[in-house]
Design a protein around this nucleic acid. Structure first.
Lengths: 343, 343
DNA sequence: TTGAAAGCGCTAACAT
DNA sequence: ATGTTAGCGCTTTCAA
């Protein structure tokens, strides 16, 4: 009763329009449409519309070896740093006609490996990787495989791969100098994991800057993740072991929140008793209690620049790798103030 | 100099292992592996690994008519409501072996139409749509096309399609009753666009509840979007035209933030002079100034339930549509308090 | 300007 | 338990 063939194929369009299938193919392809007689072109296009024809991307991809999709792996889309980055990438890819495959790896190498494998099986034309560790074996594997690759937010120690990352060094320096300018002399750093480039670079910058400033009493801790809970846990230790610290540079805004909460629980108010500088200027950072002083990284731009770089790499796989540093700027709000008068 | 054929094909594996291509195919497919002699199976798998073989998903999809990918369209991944929803969907799909294609539509019908078209050309096996308006023509088109479809967060007025949405009615009711219990009698609603199901349903619930409670002085406004800026703009009007209002139910948390900011600019402190209830309990809602009283919607669960429903629908396209209501609960924090004493 | 034909890499009857 | 074969729907030389 239902002679319904599923969706119309190119062949159906060709027959309905009374042309050969290859003519129909040319008509429906921007690039080759110019070769056709305008009348034929018009006729084929109308028939296609009439039939509700939709090209089968799989068949096309099989033939052209291009899926027009890009895979992106982030540690966790739920971390407020990433949505604007993803959105930036999305917008660029969308304009270039690409679709975005998204995965959260939870910083689990096995998971990331499975996810990228699935993306590559699906013939993703390139990868945006935002979860790399400094010595990430997956990045090495993928590079060896020849996949166009751009690292986002975090990079690896041994270069050789394109990356778009924040200017960690400059950011942490600004944070320290801001606290110093307010009068703080006993500073601490509660950074993210040293296994990540931004964890390590912000830490290195902190160390160097406090030394340059000749600060006598400093502490540096490593939170196990870039989230509130890890910041909270690290701050417990910090506050217990270094009670005289008055200014803290946090690995990112979420860690900063964790520090502020931990301090409050010990009766130390931010910014009255202790100042905290965040990193990133995530969404709502300025509406928090207290509004966060932080290093603003233009997250959307990180995403667009990374996608643009990847598009260039897909177009020319021989293009040599480059690292783009996105600079941040200090945004002073309510979580920093001069140290307590007794100091 | 480079006899390099690109990546190995199934045929290469078969030849290297000394079996026929179809045997190799069976060996590399969970479902058919059982048919083989264990020794052959082992041998083929090892050769495949040795060669770094990776199945070509396009070729497989072309043959099987399944791409193992799902498309998801959200209004804007940058709105803090969506990341947990996306993450929930991602986790379920990942476990089922599916990849997720993500797009932000900016509530633009044309954009959404192009994005879903691209997803469908890529042969997405189903769609998760989080941007539907109550009369969305795109949903109708897609349904007509027979695509497995699940609406997320927002649904359409005329049913016939599966959806996973918050219990808007119950949520808004709880919000009103909370303010009433605190002593507020002059209430306002600053909701999201009435063109969305959650905008309309929360509004209807507000209207009904204030009427049931016999409240004499109420106001209801429609913010043009579910964001801070729209909430701020609507609140300007509200505060100017209804200065005696003491309690406000907001369309969501971002609108609530906009209201609180607008009130502060007019010298009305929240919660001292005016109480505001949000909706969703987005990330960091409890760390804002003031911590937001809100209706908590388990966002991650919305995502998992929607993905589960879609998986069921993909497996059995004849399955009849169902709507899953996810209930919320009131979370009392600092943005609500009894009305000013002078009241 | 259009038609003919080969084949992208894989799976799934069907045959043995 | 394994081999044979016929496409899936499309693009793209090559020929006319």
């Amino acid at each position: 009763m239902t002679p319904d063939r599923r969706s119309p194929r190119l062949k159906d369009v060709a027959e309905a329009a009374g042309v050969h299938i290859s003519t129909a193919s040319r008509a429906l392809n921007e690039r080759t449409a110019a070769l056709l007689n305008p009348a034929t072109l018009e006729r084929v296009r109308e028939t296609a519309d009439g039939l509700g024809y939709r090209v089968n991307g799989m068949a096309r991809a099989l033939k052209t070896r291009r899926s027009m999709s890009i895979g992106m792996v982030v540690p966790d889309i739920t971390n407020p740093f990433f949505p604007p980055v993803v959105r930036g990438a999305e917008d660029v890819l969308d304009r270039a006609g690409y679709s975005l495959l998204l995965s959260s790896s939870d910083n689990d190498l096995g998971r990331a490996r499975r996810q990228t494998a699935a993306m590559l099986e699906g013939q993703a034309d390139g990868l945006l990787l935002a979860m790399a560790r400094r010595d990430d074996p997956l990045v090495a594997e993928l590079r060896a495989g020849g996949t166009p690759l751009v690292l986002v937010n975090r990079t690896i120690d041994r270069g050789g791969v394109s990356a778009v990352i924040p200017d960690d060094f400059h950011g942490a320096l600004e944070a320290v100098e801001h606290l110093y300018a307010l009068g703080h002399r006993r500073l601490a750093f509660v950074g993210g994991p040293l296994s990540t480039s931004n964890g390590a670079r912000r830490r290195a910058s902190f160390d160097e800057t406090v030394q340059r400033l000749g600060l006598p009493e400093v502490a540096a801790l490593e939170a196990v993740a870039f989230d509130e809970q890890a910041g909270y846990a690290a701050a417990q230790t910090l506050l217990a072991e270094h009670p005289r610290i008055t200014g803290v540079v946090a690995g990112n805004d979420l860690i900063a929140v964790g520090i502020i909460v931990a301090a409050a629980e010990r009766g130390r108010n931010c910014p009255r008793d202790i100042s905290v500088v965040g990193f990133n200027d995530m969404l709502l950072a300025g509406r928090l209690q207290p509004p966060l002083t932080t290093i603003r990284i233009p997250q959307y731009d990180v995403g667009t620049r990374a996608a643009e770089l990847l598009m260039a790499l897909v177009a020319d796989p021989a293009r040599s790798p480059e690292t783009v540093l996105i600079s941040g700027e200090l945004v002073v709000r309510g979580s920093t103030a001069p140290p307590p008068a007794s100091d």
